[in-house]
């Protein structure tokens, strides 16, 4: 009984405040990312590395066309650059004058995630690592979270891929990473910031009674990126490269509009104005005018 009322009282006092007021759950880490769109060449290595690391099923042409693809990380490509030449794309007879713009989109690990509160069974929730986790085995597949993700970065197992004619015919099954569940049909999944690598690094650090070092965790996409456009690290670690990059770009968590001294800085978060508070910072693409 005491625990009940104690917990309820604690619930009132500790947790009624939002993160801005500092009344939030104590974070062990706050994993964040910086993606330099000027360095990103759109080569797709990250996406394939993600398939390899995270046991993502390939679906084939028909299902892909039906938009049932499973990629956690998609590299989007746009031909217009409204900030530089608005409307340039409208002249159908002209040729492209610049290259395309590439945008690697993985789960933005929002700190005020829109997917979390709507899950009926709390299969998606916020971890003390600042991650937007998905517990596959708890998921019942209501797909509300995916509807509510403004980034459309949640993918659903519309089919079973574990059969022999599925995504991993023998012996391809042998490649599956045992550190990650192979998701069953009817389960939502998404980018986890390679939580298995984070977990391994944290376990290792704990075994050695130390903190996780910067650069100790590398996500699969970051590790393979040929131009090193992706940076990953702990935003609570003031010495990490990611924190420094966020500071340099004067972008802070917990805000939907950054008050920056220098408006020409390149850092921005996609759909920041929706107040989802994403953990992925993009650096604007640079173009010669």
């Amino acid at each position: 009984m005491s625990s009940l009322f104690g917990n309820i009282l604690k619930g009132w006092t500790d947790y009624t405040k939002g993160i801005e007021e500092g009344g939030h759950h104590k974070y062990e880490h706050m994993w964040g990312m910086v993606i330099d769109l000027d360095k990103c060449t759109g080569c797709n290595a990250c996406s394939v590395a993600c398939y390899a690391e995270n046991n993502i099923a390939t679906v084939g042409e028909e299902k892909y066309k039906a938009r049932q693809s499973m990629q956690w990380l998609r590299v989007e490509r746009y031909f217009d650059e409204p900030d530089i030449d608005p409307g340039a794309i409208d002249d159908e007879n002209a040729m492209q004058e610049r290259g395309a713009s590439f945008l690697p989109m993985m789960c933005q690990q929002c700190n005020a995630a829109t997917c979390e509160p709507v899950c009926p069974v709390a299969a998606t929730y916020h971890t003390p690592d600042g991650l937007n986790a998905q517990i596959y085995n708890r998921c019942i597949g209501s797909r509300y979270c995916a509807n509510n993700c403004p980034y459309r970065l949640r993918v659903f197992n519309f089919y079973s891929y574990t059969d022999e004619d599925g995504a991993w015919p023998e012996p391809m099954k042998q490649q599956l990473n045992p550190d990650i569940t192979v998701r069953e049909k009817g389960v939502m999944e998404k980018c986890t910031f390679c939580i298995q690598r984070i977990r391994a690094a944290k376990d290792k650090a704990k075994m050695e009674n130390r903190k996780v070092k910067d650069d100790e965790v590398k996500t699969a996409c970051q590790q393979t990126c040929p131009t090193q456009a992706i940076m990953f690290g702990d935003l609570l670690n003031s010495e990490s490269k990611v924190t420094q990059a966020w500071e340099r770009q004067q972008v802070k968590l917990g805000k939907y509009k950054q008050d920056r001294e220098n408006p020409k800085l390149r850092g921005y978060r996609v759909f920041e104005e929706l107040n989802t508070d994403p953990s992925v910072l993009y650096l604007e693409r640079v173009r010669e005018e």
Binding site: L4, I8, G11, Y15, C110, A112, E116, A122, P128, D277
Partner: peptide
């Protein structure tokens, strides 16, 4: 109310993105 508050307060495994528990 108390049932829900009790359930939520004892299920604090999940801090939900800066939102209150109860």
């Amino acid at each position: 109310f108390f049932f829900l508050a009790g359930a939520q307060a004892n299920f604090t495994v999940q801090p939900q993105g800066g939102k209150p528990v109860i």
